[in-house]
Nucleic acid binder design. Structure first.
Length: 525
RNA sequence: GCGCCUGUAGCUCAGUAGGAUAGAGCAACAGCCUUCUAAGCUGUGGGCCGGGGGUUCAAUUCCCUCCAGGCGCACCA
């Protein structure tokens, strides 16, 4: 149809020519026909699907793995929360998306590094320290400080650490930075101490506590990072300074009005951006310049940043940074994750970090479980709005799609167990007569299994892991339907064998796909 | 004011390198458990794909415009 205009022929005639010239080298096409305005339908031979079942059986957990990445190094940076409070549901969504995407890219042959950028420099950490300090000396938290029970907890633990250090029984392992802080603590006269004097201690302690908590939350959510990258380290090792020097050399940084600017307009940004302020301090962009330069220097061919959608205005300047360092714009992909609206009993839960009133990732994991939470976060395109109803996600019922899929897997495990108990061994795929699988339902299932690698590939290319949740729901639907209407274990041995291998394939694919999402595939429910 | 995202069934959302009769889940209604797990299955109803224009043989998909919602527009992070 696309050729009709240029070829000046009717679409149906062109279709006929294509079919006539078609060479089926692998001999997998059964027949073709021309439909509607000029579509060509290909019907594949049953043998194609039979081979597929053998392939799935043989490849097992590797079925669906392909190699479009060719071992290329990719970095996925996600969550990257300020260590100024516990992770909330929005971070959870970013974590689920980032982790699933990393799994996905690894499955298609990329060498993936997961990284958490710790925003541990600047004003936010100072505010955190100030908030904890205020609680420590029993004064009200400054208006723009952080509120919430966790501030009290950190303040209490600070108290314990101080007295521990004073008594010389500091039990926690102290890192280099902490050792310095410990000697500082001894020299200070707690609790009658000014914030200025004690800021290094409170900043260190608060940051440490929160990072531990963040790390634990993520681990309980099944997310592990290969690298935790500290923003502060870029200042400490003068990377920021060097990066800015390099930009100057390259002609993309200049001085104006006593400030230093990035010439981001050279790459399509609305205006140039300040890197060093009039007062000599750095903007957030300065560390980001150094950070992205660092990423590039580590040899990543592709960088993926997962950001909250509220940061979208920041995209052009970071893209500009990439280009200013001489790399193509599409080296960096920025995925926006819409913030999550949390509902409880259908009513929105107000979220404000400052007021300390927000639903944490931990609460969500505890309430609905890691599997349900991850699946929910991955059910929609990451840049679409997500309503997360805690009561709904908690329900262990059909309203909860994750159970629908997991149940399909558990059911099949149960069938295999049942077969085993009846003394039927799982047949060898090569010795099975798949020609016995004649039911339309069986054909549909085989087609869906054949679609799995394509789904993975498309999902990876588009950086859209949510497609896998849809695939899974479809496959589980076909399975449940088939299971209800037909028996797998029958008196007919050859048929039973064929069906067992088919079911094993379904189970394998469900397991593989859930694995990419980071959701468990239970054998019993 | 400028920019980005979103608008598809009652609800929550898939579907776009333009293509056949637009899909799923939930909710609603009516049914199905002596049989491998009923966290399941079957059936029914439900849509001017936000409005209007344009390009095209063909538009949910591309362009323009308007409306509605969200988010950005710092020498904050």
């Amino acid at each position: 149809m696309a050729l009709a205009a240029s070829e000046k022929k009717k679409p149906r005639d062109i279709a006929e020519i294509i079919i006539r010239r078609l060479r089926d080298e692998k001999g997998i096409i059964d027949r073709t026909d021309i439909a509607g305005p000029g579509f060509i339908n290909f019907f594949l031979k049953d043998e194609y699907y039979h081979k597929l079942l053998k392939q799935i059986d043989k490849e097992g957990k590797d079925y669906g793995r392909i190699d479009i990445g060719k071992g290329e190094k990719v970095q996925v940076e996600f969550v990257s929360a300020n260590p100024t409070g516990p992770l909330h549901v929005g971070h959870g969504r970013g974590a689920a998306v980032g982790d699933a995407l990393s799994n996905l890219l690894a499955a298609v042959g990329y060498d993936v590094t997961r990284e958490f950028y710790i925003n541990d420099a600047g004003r936010q950490v100072k505010l955190l320290a100030q908030s904890v300090y205020s609680r420590y000396i029993n004064k009200p938290i400054p208006e723009d400080g952080y509120q919430g029970a966790y501030i009290d907890e950190i303040s209490d633990s600070a108290r314990a650490v101080i007295s521990g250090i004073k008594k010389g029984i500091y039990s926690e392992p102290i890192d280099n930075e902490g050792a310095a802080t410990a000697s500082q603590v001894i020299s200070l006269n707690f609790p009658n101490i000014s914030f200025e004097e004690s800021e290094p201690f409170f900043a260190w302690h608060s940051k440490k506590r929160l990072l531990e908590e963040i790390r634990k939350d993520l681990e309980d959510f099944g997310v592990r990072f290969d690298n935790w990258f500290s923003e502060q380290s870029l200042l400490d090792d003068s990377s920021v300074k060097k990066s800015i020097e390099e930009l100057k050399k390259r002609g993309f940084a200049y001085e104006k009005d006593d400030a230093l600017w990035l010439r981001s307009t050279a790459f399509g940004d609305d205006k140039d951006r300040v890197v060093i302020k009039k007062d000599g301090s750095y903007t957030y962009l300065a560390t980001d310049i150094a950070y992205h330069r660092n990423k590039l220097s580590r040899g990543f061919k592709k960088l993926i940043n997962i950001w909250g959608a509220d940061h979208h205005g920041y995209i052009p300047r970071v893209q500009a940074v990439i280009q200013a360092f001489g790399h193509p714009k599409d080296t960096l992909h920025i995925l926006l994750v819409q913030l999550v609206a949390v509902l409880r009993h259908g009513k929105p839960v107000p979220m404000s970090k400052r007021a300390g009133d927000f639903v944490t990732l931990r609460e969500v994991i505890q309430e609905v479980g890691s599997d349900a939470a991850r699946f929910f976060f991955l059910m929609r395109r990451s840049d679409s709005h997500l309503d997360f109803d805690l009561e709904l996600a908690k329900k262990q019922s059909s309203e909860n799609p994750v159970y629908y899929v997991q149940y399909a897997h558990a059911r099949l495990c149960s069938v295999e167990k049942q077969a085993e108990e009846r003394g039927i061994k799982m047949p060898v795929a090569d010795s099975v007569d798949f020609g016995l699988l004649k039911l339309p339902e069986e054909k549909n299932i085989m087609k869906q299994l054949a679609l799995y690698p394509i789904t993975i590939e498309g999902s990876a290319r588009a950086l859209e892991p949510h497609r896998i949740t849809f695939y899974l729901q479809n496959l589980a639907g076909l399975l449940h339907n088939y299971y209800f209407h037909h028996r797998i274990i029958t008196d007919d041995k050859p048929l039973t064998d064929a069906r067992l291998v088919l079911m094993k394939g379904v189970r394998q694919v469900i397991k593989n796909a859930l694995g990419i999402l980071g959701v468990s595939a239970p054998e019993k429910m």
